[in-house]
Amino acid sequence: MTSMPRLDSSISVLLADDDPDDCRLTMEAFRAARIDNPMQFVEDGEVLLDYLKGRDRYAATAPPLPGLILLDLNMPRVDGREALAQIKSDPTLKHIPVVVLTTSSAEVDVARAYQAGCNSFIQKPGSFGALVEIASTLGRYWFSVVDLPEQPR
């Protein structure tokens, strides 16, 4: 019997979601799943792009690029669809895995997200227990199973 490799807790997660309750629940679900990776939050696609490109409020600090982005589609200002397109068209950002985590189940959103380059599309579940299971699965897959590229920044 082969054991699973340990989770790489050095990989940071950037969650882009305009709903503070969803952000809190996602963080609690990761904790409940014993995924202790660093997690940052941004409230819309415009702030997400500022964070990733080290602009505006992030210009002085230039935070390190995340190892994984969890992206809601329905956000104000720049929505997740546009943010995803910009991330995947930028040579310095396109290597970052993006998992769409959204309330939408519309087939058009699923198709467009994959066409734009998302790595996975997950509909937000209706229960906290299901969210914990998603967090556990994401943690095992992205922080243990796959090899992620080195972060350039």
Rank of each mutant, 00 (worst) to 15 (best):
T2D: 02
S3D: 12
M4S: 12
P5K: 15
P5V: 10
S9V: 06
S9C: 04
S9M: 07
S12Y: 04
A16E: 00
A16L: 07
D17E: 13
D17K: 04
D19G: 07
D22R: 06
D22T: 08
C23T: 02
C23A: 08
R24S: 15
R24F: 15
L25W: 15
T26G: 05
T26P: 04
M27P: 06
M27T: 14
A29N: 11
F30L: 11
F30I: 07
F30R: 03
A33G: 10
R34V: 08
R34C: 11
I35K: 01
D36S: 02
N37I: 08
N37W: 02
P38I: 05
Q40M: 13
Q40L: 15
F41S: 11
V42W: 12
E43R: 14
E43D: 11
E43S: 14
D44L: 15
G45N: 10
V47C: 04
L48F: 01
L48Y: 04
L48K: 08
L49V: 13
Y51M: 00
Y51L: 04
L52C: 03
L52R: 09
K53V: 09
K53T: 14
G54K: 12
G54H: 09
D56I: 12
R57Y: 01
R57F: 00
A60E: 14
A60C: 05
T61D: 14
T61N: 12
P63Y: 03
P63I: 11
P64A: 10
P64K: 03
L65E: 14
L65I: 09
P66V: 06
I69V: 07
L70M: 05
L70G: 03
L71K: 07
L71C: 03
L71W: 02
L71P: 01
D72F: 05
L73H: 02
N74S: 12
M75S: 04
D79Q: 13
D79G: 04
D79H: 13
D79L: 12
G80L: 09
R81E: 00
R81Q: 01
R81S: 00
R81D: 00
A83G: 15
L84N: 04
L84P: 05
A85P: 00
A85W: 01
I87M: 14
K88D: 08
S89I: 13
D90G: 14
P91C: 02
P91M: 07
P91G: 07
P97L: 11
V98K: 15
V99C: 06
L101C: 01
T102W: 11
T103S: 09
T103D: 09
S104H: 02
S105W: 10
D109P: 10
V110K: 13
A111N: 06
A111Y: 12
R112P: 00
R112H: 10
R112E: 06
R112I: 15
Y114W: 10
A116L: 15
A116I: 08
A116G: 06
G117M: 10
G117P: 02
C118N: 03
C118K: 03
N119G: 08
N119S: 12
I122M: 03
I122V: 06
K124W: 07
S127M: 03
F128S: 02
L131C: 01
V132P: 03
E133H: 15
E133I: 08
I134K: 13
A135S: 09
A135L: 00
S136N: 03
G139E: 02
Y141D: 10
Y141E: 07
S144W: 05
V146F: 01
D147H: 12
L148S: 07
P149N: 14
E150Y: 05
R153D: 15
